[in-house]
């Protein structure tokens, strides 16, 4: 059980509700809009339409057009105005409709949001969250399916968070909004409605920078996050039926990495398989490899395996299933590591 920070434990009424991830995100946004006057949502179609994924459903109606703002279709404008709001004392939560649409805003994030604290020696911070649905698997058109965490983990000054479950999504999103630094909040759109989970109705935060061991096993460590968690778990179950025990780690935060979690597990198993759907070259798996190299090199019993997207743009969706790592590919890497 993660250390969930309950902010009000007095309530005796119903303390959880069954939610999908997209509902949990909606609940987190609603909670923050209720509790913090300075929280403002900005994005394309987030108002009357409730967002293309309905993550902001009903929020404009409840909190008004001043706090849930339907913006012009202008990603750089959304992030630029959010920076302006942030230096003016607000906590903007802006939505990129898809992570693949974030590129026009890259300049604002890279040259301003990430640097303002540093260049003013803390006079200004940018307490902003950029929500970005990411990843392939929902048969969306070109550019809608990118998974570009590593361009942001390579950007000093921002944090990158990526939940895999409804409960984590709520707790991490609240933590991201409360965080005084800018957070890129990646939402696995494939998981938006894939599962329901009992989610606490209260306001709670999960710590940014902490991952979690989802499954315990002695032979190999599988390291992943977001939509790939279910793929990794499936592979781990198949491996178990062959007598291979897997530690499955859900990183949850991609910057800063939970290095202790990775090191402890790999030092126990001596083997690691890293799974992500982003392209391999320059992917976050390389930083995870470095963590293992720095902390656990002499514990290794086999080369570290990587199961990732290929070094091609996420293809048109007729091919996306071939691009995405599958449980079969993960299992084959587990076997390779164990039988080295």
């Amino acid at each position: 059980m993660m250390d969930i920070k309950m902010e009000d434990q007095k309530t005796q009424t119903k303390t959880t509700q069954s939610l999908t991830m997209v509902q949990a995100i909606n609940d987190a946004l609603k909670t923050m809009l209720e509790q913090d006057e300075t929280t403002i949502l900005l994005g394309e179609d987030i108002g009357k339409n409730g967002g293309v994924f309905r993550a902001t459903e009903g929020l404009q109606e409840q909190f008004g057009e001043d706090r849930v703002i339907d913006t012009p279709l202008s990603e750089s404008g959304i992030v630029g105005t959010s920076i302006g709001l942030a230096v003016n004392g607000f906590k903007p939560v802006c939505e990129m409709q898809f992570m693949g649409f974030i590129y026009p805003a890259y300049d604002q994030i890279m040259t301003h949001a990430s640097r303002l604290r540093m260049k003013t020696m803390g006079h200004y911070s940018v307490p902003m969250v950029i929500r970005a649905p990411y990843g392939a698997g929902i048969r969306a058109p070109e550019i809608h399916s990118d998974s570009m965490e590593s361009i942001f983990t390579h950007m000093p000054g921002v944090k990158v968070v990526c939940p895999a479950t409804p409960k984590d999504a709520k707790g991490l999103l609240i933590a991201a909004i409360e965080d005084p630094d800018p957070v890129i909040f990646m939402e696995p759109m494939r998981s938006y409605r894939a599962q329901r989970e009992e989610v606490p109705t209260e306001k709670y935060q999960l710590p940014i920078g902490k991952g979690e061991k989802i499954k315990e096993g002695d032979d190999v460590t599988i390291i992943t996050w977001g939509a790939m968690l279910s793929v990794a778990k499936q592979a781990a179950e198949q491996a178990e039926s062959q007598g291979i025990g897997c530690d499955v780690l859900d990183l949850k935060t991609l910057y800063p990495l939970d290095r202790n979690l990775i090191a402890e597990s790999v030092q126990k198993t001596g083997r690691a398989v890293i799974v992500h759907e982003a392209h391999q070259t320059g992917g976050l798996s390389q930083d995870i490899l470095s963590v293992i190299n720095d902390t656990s090199f002499l514990y290794l019993r086999a080369p570290i395996e990587r199961v990732t997207g290929f070094d091609v743009p996420v293809p048109f969706f007729a091919l996306e299933d071939h691009y995405l790592p599958t449980a079969k590919r993960v299992l084959s890497s587990i076997e390779k590591a164990v039988h080295f």
Binding site: S82, I83, G84, L85, V87, N88, H112
Partner: peptide, 15 residues
């Protein structure tokens, strides 16, 4: 780059 940020600061002043 400051032009979109100015719009945001102004939005905050208005709010």
């Amino acid at each position: 780059a400051q032009i979109t940020q100015a719009a945001g600061v102004a939005l905050g002043l208005k709010r």
